[in-house]
């Protein structure tokens, strides 16, 4: 083969010595720079093996003399991040409602931190943005079973509802149907009555005769907690029946099921899991979803300059 190698006239390059149907192939050498870069990469890989984790072993791997570990780096970075946020959380934990109202930085931090924790722990049940789900109350609306001020929400978060916390918020509606406390007819009547006092009456047009019978049952059985008018009682965690917002669904059938079963969900107490700052951030975030109630009279209008205060509103 070698004897057939020849030099191409035009390029001055050797050919490979093969010939296919009269075609010969140039054996152009690799460009020098390319070759050297290639050697350099080989060298670099050897250096890399020495410095960095590279080869798998039977039970582990070669760690390299730099002791590089992405896992440790991430851990350190997370710790650093948490440490850098700690002062803000502490400030938030000690702040009063008026402190927060007066401090835009604190509000911004509380909202961001609250949103993040909510996404991790609360969203599963209450939905993104507090949208709620059947059996799990909507948090973005202005209907509150246990109260909607910042302090109320924070307390609910701390102690939970029907949780194992000693001070937990606790209420229990009897299961009138399952436990045979009321007859099916009575339950039907009281359902009609509840619909008739609620904002759902236009939608569901209750039977007036059944509602009138149900009113008597209601006063005997339900008014103690839900109030004589059905306005509910937050101190006992009894929801108002006057609105058209229903935790377990607002159809006639769903309302009746609730009278039969008296369901009540469990919300964990977060006090043991989170520090005061995180709980406050969560409370603030939920409060600011839009339905939060004022703890105190609303703060005065903010002012940029003294001149702005005297400027007439148009």
């Amino acid at each position: 083969m070698a004897d057939k190698r020849e030099r191409d006239e035009i390029s001055g390059t050797e050919t490979t010595g093969h010939e296919w149907d009269g075609l010969r192939e140039l054996d152009t050498p690799l460009p020098r720079w390319w070759l050297y870069v290639f050697y350099a990469t080989i060298l670099a890989s050897v250096v890399y093996w020495v410095l960095m984790p590279a080869w798998p072993l039977a039970n582990g791997y070669t760690t390299g003399i730099l002791n590089w570990s992405d896992r440790d780096n991430v851990r350190a970075e997370v710790q650093q991040l948490e440490a850098s946020r700690l002062p803000m959380f502490e400030r938030l934990g000690q702040a009063s409602v008026t402190d927060i109202a007066a401090d835009p930085d604190l509000q911004e931090f509380a909202r961001a931190a609250g949103a993040s924790v909510f996404g991790d722990y609360c969203r599963t049940c209450h939905g993104a943005g507090g949208a709620g789900a059947p059996g799990f109350p909507v948090l973005a609306d202005d209907v509150w079973t246990w109260g909607g001020t910042l302090a109320d929400i924070e307390r609910t978060l701390r102690v939970g509802i029907r949780s194992d916390h000693p001070e937990t918020r606790m209420s229990q509606m009897p299961a009138y149907g399952r436990d045979n406390l009321l007859s099916a007819a009575q339950i039907g009547d009281v359902t009609e009555y509840v619909i008739s006092v609620s904002a759902a009456r236009e939608r569901l047009s209750p039977d007036p005769a059944a509602a009138a019978r149900g009113a008597i049952v209601y006063q005997e059985q339900c008014s103690l907690c839900h109030g004589p008018s059905g306005a509910g009682d937050r101190t006992q965690g009894a929801p108002s029946l006057l609105d058209d917002v229903w935790v377990y669904g607002g159809s006639r059938e769903e309302i009746r099921r609730q009278v039969e079963l008296g369901r009540g969900g469990v919300m964990p107490a977060w006090e043991a899991r989170f520090d005061a700052g995180t709980i406050r951030a969560l409370a603030y975030y939920v409060h600011e979803m839009g339905g939060g109630e004022p703890d105190a009279p609303p703060p005065p209008l903010p002012e940029a300059t003294p001149a702005a205060a005297t400027a007439p509103a148009q």
């Binding site: 943005g129 949208a131 909507v138 609306d141 609105d243 058209d244 979803m289 839009g290």
Partner: peptide
């Protein structure tokens, strides 16, 4: 505009967007 919830029904029946 908030995407979730897309709208909120309030106690008095009115509707809120955030």
């Amino acid at each position: 505009r908030d995407r979730s919830p897309p709208f909120v029904r309030l106690a008095d029946g009115s509707i809120r967007n955030d």
